[in-house]
Amino acid sequence: MIGLIIAIILFNFIAFKTNKRLTANQIVHLWLFTIAFQSNFDVYIDLKYHGYWYFTDGADWTGILVHTVLIPPVNMMFLNWYPFKRNYIRQVRYFIFWLIAILLYEMLTLLPEPWGYFYYGWWNLWHSAILNPVLLLILLGYYKAVCKLEDRLLARKK
């Protein structure tokens, strides 16, 4: 639990302190999207198929912290610093850097309590390595869709 609390404080502080790109509307969209997407995914992988879990196998109250206040600021940081206006090579390097960082953080969460809070059933790091790029691409697509909706709304107001 100590590791989770430190990560929540650190990630939220960094995400909000360094945010220069995301509007309040985008943050709310991103936060709610992350919670909904992660929760839906975990209903199957965690609760139904017991692939992994937070703290205890099955539903628990402490797992809510992971969904609601840990993962959304990480997504904020990813999008805030994403080099949208840079060349493709730079974007790919940034993407790879984040994939490695996420996997390293997942390895830290596997430490014994009180530092770790994540446990594997049949899931392993390779599953995450394969799935994380897809999840980050979905996040990028969602962010771009929200930006387009905002642009359309602003154009209508003019």
Rank of each mutant, 00 (worst) to 15 (best):
L70Q: 04
C147K: 07
V74H: 00
F41A: 11
I100Y: 05
I35E: 01
V146H: 05
A15P: 06
L140A: 08
I8Q: 02
L103D: 14
Y82D: 01
G3Q: 03
K85Q: 15
R86A: 15
A15W: 01
F33P: 03
Q91D: 05
L137S: 11
E113A: 10
L104A: 03
I138N: 09
R21D: 05
P133V: 07
V28H: 02
G51E: 06
W115F: 14
W53V: 09
I6V: 14
V43C: 08
L10N: 04
T62C: 10
I138P: 01
K20E: 07
E106M: 05
I9F: 01
L125R: 06
P72M: 04
A7N: 07
V134P: 02
K48R: 13
G3M: 05
F78Q: 02
T62A: 15
F16D: 02
W61S: 11
P83S: 08
S39W: 09
F41H: 13
A129S: 09
I64P: 00
L139W: 01
Y49A: 12
D57S: 07
D151L: 13
L47F: 10
N80A: 06
G51P: 07
N124D: 12
D46Q: 10
L136A: 06
V28W: 03
F97E: 03
M1D: 11
D46N: 13
N75E: 00
L10V: 14
P73S: 03
L103H: 08
K85N: 15
A36N: 08
Y120C: 07
F55Y: 14
C147H: 01
V134Q: 01
H127D: 13
V146S: 06
T68G: 07
P114G: 02
G3W: 01
R90A: 15
H67Q: 05
L10M: 12
N80S: 08
T68A: 10
Y52M: 03
Y82G: 03
D57Y: 04
L70K: 02
L79K: 07
W31Q: 06
D151Y: 10
N132W: 14
Y82V: 05
M76K: 00
F33N: 00
W126Y: 12
W61H: 12
I14K: 05
G3N: 04
G116K: 08
W115C: 06
Y105W: 13
I35P: 04
I2S: 12
A59S: 07
T68N: 06
K85R: 14
V43P: 00
L108H: 00
R156Y: 11
